[in-house]
């Protein structure tokens, strides 16, 4: 015969299994803070050093390759940080970061990001460089909104914020990279700080 404690343990186990098997929880606030910082540095490099200041959808700019390299660098660093951080946090929880939930999370993000990425590439090669920043925000927002099904609900809220910033950015193209820096930089940092205080202390 089981004791009362055993039943309490059963319930705790049921709860933890339901959460673990449906939500990916191994992403810490630090990944957000780091990603935001890379984005702010990247936006600064593009704006101040490369003088990349799109003000219309059709924007002619000769040094595009350097801007794209900067963007790729920001993306690469952010991804590496997120992966390493997830692995560290998963190890601490004695789980594997690579499981059915994280695979679903990645697929749900990858679909809108691939579609958006290809569209943005086509637009850029046709001179619509001013649309790159608003559309990266918009598609990233969609990806986050999708991913919110498989992780904490705050990610969906962040998705909405990114979509809104993307649309505003498309409306006020004259502000160039400002909205992009707010979305990928400031929002990520704020989200990271929030996560850190809400879930990690």
């Amino acid at each position: 015969m089981k004791e009362e404690q055993d039943y309490l343990k059963d319930i705790a186990e049921i709860r933890s299994m339901m959460e673990r098997s449906s939500k990916f929880l191994s992403l810490s606030g630090w990944a957000g803070i780091l990603a935001g910082t890379y984005a702010l540095v990247g936006a600064w490099i593009a704006h101040s050093l490369l003088k990349f200041r799109p003000d219309e959808f059709f924007y002619s700019y000769s040094n595009l390759i350097n801007v794209l390299l900067t963007a790729a660098g920001v993306l690469g660093l952010a991804l590496v940080s997120a992966l390493l951080d997830s692995r560290r946090k998963a190890n601490k929880r004695e789980e594997s970061a690579w499981n059915a939930t994280s695979r679903r999370l990645l697929v749900s993000m990858a679909v809108p990001l691939f579609a958006g990425g290809i569209l943005i590439f086509i637009l850029i090669s046709n001179g619509l460089i001013g649309l790159a920043a608003p559309l990266t925000l918009l598609f990233y927002g969609l990806a986050l909104y999708n991913a919110g099904h498989f992780t904490i609900k705050e990610v969906r809220v962040m998705g909405f914020v990114q979509m809104l910033l993307g649309l505003l950015n498309a409306f006020f193209v004259g502000y160039g990279l400002l909205f992009w820096a707010i979305g990928f930089g400031v929002v990520h940092v704020l989200y990271g700080i929030y996560m850190h205080f809400r879930y990690e202390r």
């Binding site: 299994m17 339901m18 499981n99 059915a100």
Partner: peptide, 20 residues
Amino acid sequence: GIMSALAVNDTLDFTALKEF
């Protein structure tokens, strides 16, 4: 545990269950 995981997922394969 198997039942808890299947209660919140439509389907799971053997590997996924094993990992969880």
